[in-house]
């Protein structure tokens, strides 16, 4: 089993370190060739507008869309969640998400970096107590479809969701030094 971390821009290194710590062979994905050999994909946080442009210039957009249609397990965090969602508010008009996650998402919904925060989350079915989550200029999930299971909420909004083989969070589990959410993604979608 080989995982790929989309490495066009953003916190790809931290995701790679977490996956390494869990004993998963991981590669950075910047080209269609690198995408071809992976069994799961992480789309990290970063700037969704930048990643959107680089998806086009790198020729990765269509191959990733194709793999997602074939149910490639994917975990999108923050900007990654925005790229997976089918309805993005306050994005740029030319932002084209993959649209595989049935969710309405508002970009930068908490405001500027001054409002970025940490908070303890109770994650459904996660053993070992609450999860200290880091939210950086985070989006807010305003609504989700029936197929979406909400695994954690903060202030009344979903912050960790699952739809089939898609996991997505508005926070950054790769920054917490806590492997449990990545572990859960791998154990639930890779079976």
């Amino acid at each position: 089993m080989k995982a790929g971390v989309l490495a066009l821009q953003g916190a790809f290194r931290e995701h790679g370190e977490v996956l390494d710590a869990l004993g998963v062979a991981t590669i950075e994905v910047r080209t269609p060739h690198e995408l071809a050999g992976i069994d799961a994909l992480v789309i990290p946080g970063g700037e969704s507008t930048t990643m959107g442009m680089l998806l086009d210039t790198s020729g990765l957009r269509e191959p990733i869309a194709e793999r997602l249609r074939e149910s490639l397990p994917v975990f999108g965090t923050c900007a990654g969640l925005i790229l997976l969602a089918d309805d993005v508010i306050d994005g740029r008009p030319d932002q084209e998400p993959f649209g595989v996650l049935d969710a309405r998402v508002r970009r930068n919904a908490y405001g500027s970096q001054l409002a970025s925060f940490e908070a303890d989350l109770d994650v459904r079915g996660l053993a070992g107590g609450s999860f200290r989550a880091v939210f950086i200029r985070a989006p807010v999930v305003e609504a989700v479809g029936d197929a979406v299971e909400v695994l954690a909420e903060h202030d009344g909004h979903p912050v960790l969701v699952r739809q089939g083989r898609i996991f997505a969070s508005t926070f950054h589990p790769e920054l917490s030094g806590d492997l449990r959410i990545h572990e859960r993604f791998l154990s639930e979608v890779m079976t």
């Binding site: 953003g10 931290e14 700037e47 925060f117 940490e118 908070a119 609450s130 903060h154 920054l175």
Partner: peptide, 26 residues
């Protein structure tokens, strides 16, 4: 501490460095 749940904390070292992590490769 900002308004909201007790555990909700802004301006931590991790939050400050976290935005820089998001800018990597950019």
């Amino acid at each position: 501490d900002a308004p909201g749940p007790a555990s909700h904390t802004v301006g931590t070292t991790r939050v400050k460095r976290g935005l820089a992590e998001m800018l990597r490769g950019g």
